[in-house]
Design a binder for these strands. Structure first.
Lengths: 206, 206
DNA sequence: CCGATACGCAACGGACTCGTTTCGTAAAGG
DNA sequence: CCTTTACGAAACGAGTCCGTTGCGTATCGG
């Protein structure tokens, strides 16, 4: 939420004078994301670097956001990837679809940056992360949960399934790959292989 | 490796003058780890803060390490947790033992700090991480791999097991919990539940 | 055209960190 | 005792970033 939106709240009146440049606004957000994507931590981000990269005066930033945290929250919020459409026909297919979003995102600097920030800055900026999680992570978590529950009711998945551990197995396995796999893109069939492995388990059949 | 060790290399000669204080050395390492454990990123660490917390002059630090990166590598290296003894009797038991190390570590600020640094600074300080990984992560990875391989040969685990994905499932699931579980310590039986879930899989039996 | 506001730019004082140097003192060997 | 090296403390010049201010210009409504 920008200061602009805040101060105009309620009144439909258009303020006098030159209106704010939407182009500048976008440039600031983009520059912020680019810097984070380049490996910057939130604490290392400098308003001056953002302004410089965005081709914008610092004034223009401070006029919109009163501090770095607000800017970062707004910037990360623009990354909300839309949930992929789920057919609901097969839990396996839907899980693959959900996990494949993670694989695709991990190939983009933008996606990696979100993960990095989410993982490493949670301790340092708890309020920031709380807001971000609620906006961006929670919907996906819900989608996976529903998919798992549906799989249980259809009999495709174990009746005694522990939803928390199942979620952790699926997303955690992908997470492990995105963070520690040898450099380069992940294999295109990774999500499928992971889902099958998680479904089947590693124990030998009796 | 400290400068001291480097310069004395080979010669068994004791140098003249006052010897370096081992107490100061330890205090510096401890202060570094404490600061990281408090949520500091490597880039935010300041030599001055370390010196102050350690009750030591900056000179004493620069005399031993020529830059921050070397100091951090040495500090993290002292955290090498010894591998737990593995019985080799049961793959399940050994896997639980291995994963339980992760659970215990995640309850300590020290353990969390290592994870945070490893996850978030890999992009920014690739050489640092390469060194750290080789020293601290590789041994555990090997132990898990051997445990899995042994499980396959004994018939306890699937013959067609994909070692990479199996490793990712086990450590990734724990990772997911340590980073995103609700605050507080992880349940004591988490490792056991994870191993059983990974072994069994989530699919319904035919 | 006028007042109001936003723009990019440059500069400010203050705070912090860097890596180095200087100081007086402490602890070892010869 | 004397040399050598390490110690903690303090100060250094250089650099970065902070959040703010002033400047001349651009763009809106009236």
């Amino acid at each position: 939420m920008t200061i602009q939106e805040t101060t105009r709240e309620g009144t439909g009146a258009r303020p006098a004078g030159r209106p704010r440049s939407e182009k500048a606004e976008k440039a600031i957000i983009e520059a912020t994301l680019d810097l984070i994507a380049e490996g910057m931590g939130v604490s290392e981000l400098s308003i001056e670097a953002i302004a410089s990269k965005a081709g914008v005066g610092k004034t223009t930033i401070y006029r919109r956001w009163s501090n770095k945290e607000d800017l970062v929250v707004d910037a990360l919020a623009t990354l909300r990837a839309p949930l992929p459409p789920l057919t609901g026909e097969s839990a396996r297919d839907d899980l693959i679809t959900l996990l494949d979003v993670m694989r695709k995102e991990s190939g983009q600097a933008r996606g990696r940056c979100v993960m990095n920030v989410a993982m490493s800055e949670a301790d340092r900026h708890p309020r920031l992360m709380e807001r971000f999680m609620k906006r961006s992570v929670e919907p996906r978590k819900q989608a996976m949960r529903q998919t798992l529950e549906r799989g249980v009711t259809t009999g495709e998945l174990r009746a005694d399934l522990d939803l928390d551990i199942a979620t952790a197995m699926l997303t955690g396995t992908m997470l492990h790959h995105t963070k520690w796999a040898p450099a380069g893109d992940l294999p295109v069939d990774l999500a499928e292989r992971v889902v099958d492995a998680v479904m089947t388990g590693i124990a030998a059949r009796d």
